[in-house]
Nucleic acid binder design. Sequence first.
DNA 1: TTGAAAGCGCTAACAC
DNA 2: GTGTTAGCGCTTTCAA
Lengths: 339, 339
Amino acid sequence: MDMRGIAKLAGVSSATVSRVINGSSLVRPETVERVRKVIEEAKFFPNNSATTLKYGRSDTYGVVIPDITNPFFPEFIKNFEGILVGNDKDMLMATTEFDSSRMQQCIRRMLMRKVDGVALLASEIETQSFEDLIHNRVPLVTMDRGHIGRGLSDVSIDNRSGMDQALQHLKGLGHKKIGYIGGVEGLTISDHRIDAFMHALQRVGLETRPEFIKVGNYRSAGGMNAMTELLSLKDRPTAVLAANDLSAIGGMRAAMKLGVSIPTDLSIVGFDDIELSEIVHPPLTTLRLPRPELASVFFYALEQLKSTPHSRGKHYTVKTSLVVRESTGPAPKRRRGTS
Amino acid sequence: MDMRGIAKLAGVSSATVSRVINGSSLVRPETVERVRKVIEEAKFFPNNSATTLKYGRSDTYGVVIPDITNPFFPEFIKNFEGILVGNDKDMLMATTEFDSSRMQQCIRRMLMRKVDGVALLASEIETQSFEDLIHNRVPLVTMDRGHIGRGLSDVSIDNRSGMDQALQHLKGLGHKKIGYIGGVEGLTISDHRIDAFMHALQRVGLETRPEFIKVGNYRSAGGMNAMTELLSLKDRPTAVLAANDLSAIGGMRAAMKLGVSIPTDLSIVGFDDIELSEIVHPPLTTLRLPRPELASVFFYALEQLKSTPHSRGKHYTVKTSLVVRESTGPAPKRRRGTS
DNA sequence: TTGAAAGCGCTAACAC
DNA sequence: GTGTTAGCGCTTTCAA
């Protein structure tokens, strides 16, 4: 069944049916009524691909994420989809699994589906991939890459303010030796976060120790490994920051397994503030990266780019803030033998 | 840029370009080569909506889920998307947030996008909603609703075998008073699971006590509330089953807060086996519902329906199995005063 | 082995 | 207020 079918049943033309569906005010109310009824009875739904074909836009935004099993992303997706649905748009989600050929496929799918823009939260992207998007004039908003350009905006995470807060908090509790569990090596977002950590240490006046910095993988297993390494050091940190909550939670698990109690023997601070962090035991002190705000900044940035297609994108920033729970406490008294 | 553009550049017709893209063997190798090069240089991507318009199919499957922040669903999505991408298909995901008007919107979106089928994992659907899908000949596969029909298959979760295993396990540990934290009241999937629990109690030879059955909401907060109620009973259960892992984990939290230690004072069994259940402390004993298998059964069921459009669907079953971890242990000795 | 052309369903410009 | 019609990009049948 198409609009012509409906038109015939209602005794009008397909143009009128189109007008009714799109709420044009030019149609006589009784006609509207009649057409509506026929649409209802026939259970008719307009075929979106015809409009997409005609106008080259699909009212769909693409979202590319690395790993949907990291709770941070579903929480973002939930908010983002909510905004889209509220604006009568659709979402095409694709996950890269940290794999660059998957990433290429994702971009390809986005282009073939004529998405109106792409929110790119997967930072392992090579520049090459998104050149295709730029070249095809698809608005692109990235997370924490720092580069902008024509049709390209970036939402950076203000790691700095959050890290400062976290380190001040720890310093206030008497901690001096602070470790770090990183993300996946080589991703810009991980590098930014490590940089932010190092600089924050300096600003707060704590020493940086290379052996206190371990890589993880943004998942709990990586956090466990990294923490195990940190705790096997002769001179251990008394507090640890992690690149995300999942790593921090893995780290807590590893610590508990090794008989290190939290926060008595060791303090831990996460990053993201996923829902889980409140439920876990002990509840995790963490830097909150607010998903609702992040989602709406992405949406706003995309809409901006779409409405001014040929102009240069902008830098946006989302702030982080410290949420103190129970995984941080006073630094333990020094043991004999360790400095 | 469209196929005619490519055709002109390559000195062929758009038909030939189409043939090259679709891998037709009728084109002379040198022509293929030439066209390929032009496509490459122009960074051309075919416009999927034209094909969708022409053939009424989009090579996209829809997935409708209630709540993406419940880790069970991302884990399903991850597997399902993997299968789809491997078969050159796309996924249109929609979440209902347990809201029936959102559900209607979801179905509408699916119909407008001409999805080739829908995997419906949200059981709060009213029959009315999916009549639209059936009416428009869209293959539909539901989870644990039990009804099949023309173009409609169902994947049921074999709660029974799993519940039996769980209760045998608990009985073997000396438990006699077993509580249950349910899902959202009124959802068929919740009702099925409660039924399965009651029948399993009978089969295993344990008594059923209405006051031991509490509703939750599939989230940790609901599990906390339900557990708090259970523990406020004068005569408490010594073991509790939950409708999903999130509820079980919430239940553990509540128990810990009330000074009830797990598994010493109370045993808990979850349902799903989300990744989190292994990380949580203590690691959760649970009934595993294997997501990779679930995803592939859904895909298979959809493909079956698509290839035989006018025939009746089938019943599929996915079995659950008990994974014993550390949240279950021997029943505590009876305290004085409680029977 | 390649080309020409019709038609999928919708919408907006134009005609009445 | 309503109807007519062209055309979005692709594939496939038919013709050459």
